[in-house]
Design a binder for these strands. Structure first.
Length: 272
DNA sequence: CTAACTACCTGAACGC
DNA sequence: TGCGTTCAGGTAGTTA
């Protein structure tokens, strides 16, 4: 479900609710594969940061709680005005205590692709994708020349390479299609020249920044901690619009499967 | 090492 | 209405 803009929107609401609170209790669904989260009990949250699609709560005692929403994960708090009540899809519950009245935080995840883990701070060897994560796209670490060099090194088609999280962090299926459309790059391309790599660098940053400003894209499951949807879906140009006219050239957008993922693009203005 | 598959889950939408 | 098939915003594990 969530890519960088959605995860960032969750982080902005989750941070104030977790910060400066001590995790007093953890219960997890017995079928969930993150039973070691109870190692967070007794530790106080310093802050919640984001790396790519991962949320990382800093804990005292040199630990971190790493959270990934998978396709359908969301965090909700009991007793808030949105009327959230836990249902059959709650996979973990954290009881938080601290400034204010404390809080009960549910991790809801229909498809069970989400993950929670407690690790030594900065030690991500048990989470391979996080350990090898590329630069943050909206930071100065994301450099156009190094991005071009990374695209030159791989033999894989450009879209699956973006989805690997290695050339840049946080780009998923929606924003890969959107950025490639903007930069006029064919998702199958195995060679991307310097000018096109720079155009893609710019498109990734623009597409993600605009989506963050609209609090993400809600297609089906994604919702923020307060239960609201993102507003970016109406602004998508490529993703989910197969058969509709390309806004640039009016050619009906094509849909193919690439790297096992549905891919929508314009075969006329995104030539190989 | 990389690239390409498959597996992991559940529900909604669609075709007949 | 009912049943089977396909698809879904992600990653981890295995194989060549």
């Amino acid at each position: 479900m969530p890519e960088l803009p959605e995860v960032e929107s969750v982080r902005r609401q989750l941070g104030p609710r977790m910060r400066c609170r001590t995790i007093r209790a953890v219960t997890v669904d017995p079928q969930a594969r993150f039973a070691d989260v109870d190692r967070a009990v007794g530790h106080r949250v310093s802050d919640v940061v984001r790396r790519g699609k991962y949320l990382i709560a800093g804990l005292d005692g040199g630990l971190e709680l790493v959270m990934h929403l998978g396709m359908t994960g969301s965090f909700r708090f009991r007793g808030e005005a949105d009327g959230w009540a836990p249902d059959a899809y709650v996979r973990a519950t954290l009881t938080l205590e601290g400034a204010g009245d404390g809080a009960v935080m549910d991790f809801r995840d229909v498809r069970r692709f989400g993950r929670l883990a407690v690790v030594p701070a900065g030690d991500y060897h048990s989470i391979a994708t996080l350990a090898r994560l590329g630069p943050e796209p909206l930071s100065d670490d994301f450099d156009p020349d190094r991005f071009h060099a990374a695209l030159t090194r791989t033999r894989a088609p450009v879209k699956p390479f973006l989805l690997s999280q290695r050339p840049v962090a946080g780009v998923g299926n929606i924003y890969a299609d959107e950025a490639l459309w903007r930069a006029r790059i064919n998702p199958h391309s195995r060679r991307v020249g310097r000018a096109r790599a720079h155009a893609l660098w710019l498109a990734i940053r623009a597409v993600l920044a605009e989506a963050i400003a609209r609090e993400g894209t809600t297609f089906r499951d994604y919702q923020m901690v307060n239960g609201e949807s993102g507003r970016n879906a109406a602004f998508l140009v490529a993703y989910g619009r197969a058969g509709r006219p390309c806004p640039r050239c009016a050619t009906p957008l094509s849909k193919v499967v690439l790297g096992g993922r549905g891919t929508t693009y314009c075969r006329v203005c995104q030539r190989r």
